[in-house]
Design a protein around this nucleic acid. Structure first.
Ligand SMILES: [Mn+2]
Ligand SMILES: [Mn+2]
Ligand SMILES: [Zn+2]
Ligand SMILES: [Zn+2]
Lengths: 140, 140
DNA sequence: ACAGCATTGATACCTAGTATCGTTTACCGA
DNA sequence: TCGGTAAACGATACTAGGTATCAATGCTGT
């Protein structure tokens, strides 16, 4: 009986075993909502070993099932990638409540290639995050 | 006898004391060249306490005397800000040798403001790093 | 010259992971 | 459906990159 869950299906189609701990981590991430730390996942699952939490999160990052987001103070949160859209994107992060939103910009990507070509470097990847206040935090 | 050194002068003009450990850290950073880790500074100065290394680096970051740069694998290096130009800029980082170069782009900053205004966030800051190979590493 | 407070080093602690290793378990093929 | 086996697991120890505490030291303004 193959799992109906899209994340679980991708995991096993990619040749990874569908274990209890992995299912629990995925479920917990969905419960935690917009963004979560590794520690929040761990605290929600005291029966799962700490190393397994991190191993599972690393695997999910490699399979691009979660995004890693660096906050402005350097702490790290994660976000589940939306059910269908797993395209290249970046994040806007609320410095007050931690809310993470996504954006894409072809103009930005094009401009970065221009910048890259002027540096003498062969640029392959980039990291971009915007920090500010989300609309609900602005109103407060 | 006020110090002739521009970094040391700025430090004391900003109301900070010019101590032996601080001078040693600044000198060491200059010796280490283009980029360095906190650990490299510490290993070059075994007589200076670990906490002092980090305290001094934090202070210098706050005074914008050094840039903190996140490599693609997440490790952190620092770079002395050039003697005169301490303007807003970003970094291109060689994934092979770690070399850090700087760039500015008014077009990029403008475009980021446009992107920001479309997200519903009030964006105040951003983090941008480009990763690739520097020209010497490309030739190898 | 010296008082006072910034700064220091030692030490303990912290967050975010990774390495090791002996045990368990999911999966595939018979 | 029953193994055999490699993948995954939990416990534990370890790492990198810092911060908190606190008594001792030493800049610096007067
Ligand atoms: Mn995302
Ligand atoms: Mn710089
Ligand atoms: Zn918010
Ligand atoms: Zn290079």
């Amino acid at each position: 009986m193959p799992s109906i869950d899209p994340i679980e299906r991708t995991l096993s189609r990619q040749g990874h075993r569908l274990t209890g701990p992995r299912r629990a981590v995925v479920d917990t991430m969905r419960l935690l909502g917009n963004h979560f730390t590794a520690e929040e996942v761990q605290q929600a699952l005291p029966a799962v070993g700490r190393a397994t939490i991190f191993r599972t999160m690393k695997l999910m990052r490699e399979l691009e099932m979660i995004c890693q987001v660096v906050l402005d103070d350097g702490t790290i949160v994660y976000q589940l990638v939306g059910e269908d859209e797993s395209e290249h994107h970046h994040h806007v992060i609320c410095s007050d409540c931690g809310k993470v939103a996504e954006f894409t910009s072809d103009g930005l990507e094009r401009l970065l290639e221009d910048v890259a070509s002027m540096t003498g470097f062969e640029v392959g990847a980039h990291r971009i995050e915007l920090y500010g206040q989300c609309d609900s935090c602005q109103k407060k």
